[in-house]
Write a protein that binds this DNA or RNA. Structure first.
Lengths: 110, 110
DNA sequence: ACGATTGCTACTAAAAGAGTAGCACTACGT
DNA sequence: ACGTAGTGCTACTCTTTTAGTAGCAATCGT
């Protein structure tokens, strides 16, 4: 279950998603991903490049053929996720649930 | 991107996958997931129940209608993952790549 | 009453992630 | 040639998440 393991890491799906269009530079990709730590971004990019899903060209990072293939598989999932988000929020009264709150507890400035 | 955030956590996809068939008890599910820590399993189950994807019945844990719906969306992804795993290993010479090696560095027994 | 099993919590340790600074390199204008 | 600005990325510290193990309260069968 190697790929699913990879997809289970934080940011991996997001990175693939952000690369759906044109190639992005490291910093551009980072900006697209809410300014992830460069260390984490680089780790994930290394993973994805090793897995052959992303490649680095002179234009920046972009999906390989495999990566694009995977993206098309993931599209229905994104659509489902959006529909689900809508009907869940409708069901519980618009306010986000506790689910995600625990995830990123709004760090202080340090 | 709440659902994708949820799916980006470790074990979540696996749990959904293991519940594809019949309902499983807590310990049964744990066994199916390579003996995950009960603390993590419980945390993920709480997440999934809060999200309305899994429910706890007298027969054990099982997918809700939403959960099963999501599962059907995820099926193509699993198939793609298997195909991909085969062609990657064929390409690199059967031995697993470095990708996963860094991931779980084979803990000592403790 | 007794042991076995179940769901789950409590606790510690290790790994992954976040946050920030900044280096080495290239491309540029002057 | 020199400073400036942009790039990809590493180094470091600190926080959060996950792993690992023990074990408790409740239930079950005998």
């Amino acid at each position: 279950m190697a790929l699913l393991d990879l997809l289970g890491r934080r940011w991996v799906q997001r990175i693939i998603w952000e690369l759906r269009g044109e190639a992005l530079s490291f910093r551009g990709l980072r900006a697209a991903c809410d300014e992830v730590s460069p260390s984490v971004l680089n780790a994930r990019l290394t993973d994805l490049r090793t897995a052959g899903l992303v490649e680095s060209t002179e234009d920046g990072y972009q999906l390989t053929a495999d990566g694009r293939s995977l993206l098309t598989i993931m599209l229905p999932l994104h659509e489902w996720a959006e529909r689900w988000a809508r009907h869940v929020s409708a069901e519980t009264g618009t306010a986000g649930r506790k689910t995600g709150t625990r995830a990123r507890p709004s760090r202080s400035t340090r």
